[in-house]
Simulated scan of single mutants.
Amino acid sequence: MSHNVGCQGPIALTSCYATNTLIKEKRKLEGNSMTGSLNLDAYKAQQDALLAKYNGKILAWHDGKLVGIFDSKTEAMQEMKKRFEPGSFLIIKCAPGDAEYTRRFRSRVHVLSTSSHDEVVCPQ
């Protein structure tokens, strides 16, 4: 349901429409995020058992359930897009550890001083 309280005139209505559309899209993404979390949590909970059977395979998850086993991520994506809405499923390589679902970033930024007035310099 859209709420256009305080919107008057064509520009304001367009702005309110855009805002309401963004809110709906955000809610949709949050829903997908929750689904993604459900799928990832299901994978993590079963990871050890899955490794024994599917190590190296590509697994597809939807609504917290394993729904496909594939040889490649491309194959998995093509099939899952036919069956489910994009963003509602998880495709992940079955592998030990957390490397498939954790990303680590390193930076070469060095802080030369802790004073808030000094600059942070990046080595070249």
Rank of each mutant, 00 (worst) to 15 (best):
S2P: 02
H3M: 10
N4P: 01
N4M: 10
V5W: 00
V5N: 05
C7I: 08
C7V: 13
C7T: 12
C7H: 11
Q8R: 14
P10K: 12
I11C: 10
A12I: 08
A12G: 15
A12M: 10
L13W: 15
L13N: 15
T14I: 14
C16F: 12
Y17E: 14
Y17P: 05
N20V: 01
T21D: 05
I23M: 07
E25Y: 01
K28A: 09
L29T: 04
E30D: 11
G31Q: 09
N32E: 14
S33H: 12
S33P: 02
M34R: 14
T35C: 04
G36M: 14
S37T: 12
S37D: 13
S37G: 08
L38Q: 11
N39T: 06
L40E: 04
D41C: 08
A42S: 11
Y43I: 01
Y43D: 01
K44Q: 09
A45Y: 03
A45S: 11
Q46P: 01
Q47I: 07
D48L: 06
D48Q: 06
D48H: 05
L51A: 03
Y54Q: 05
Y54C: 01
G56P: 00
G56K: 07
K57S: 07
L59M: 00
A60Y: 02
A60V: 04
W61R: 04
D63M: 07
G64I: 04
G64Q: 10
L66S: 07
V67A: 05
G68W: 03
I69Y: 00
F70Y: 15
K73H: 11
T74Y: 12
T74C: 03
E75P: 06
M77R: 08
E79I: 09
K81Q: 13
K81L: 01
K82N: 07
F84L: 08
E85Q: 15
E85R: 12
P86A: 04
G87P: 05
S88E: 08
S88V: 00
I91N: 06
I92N: 03
G97T: 05
D98F: 02
T102K: 11
R104V: 12
F105I: 13
F105K: 10
F105Q: 10
R106F: 12
R108A: 11
L112F: 13
S115N: 13
E119R: 13
C122K: 15
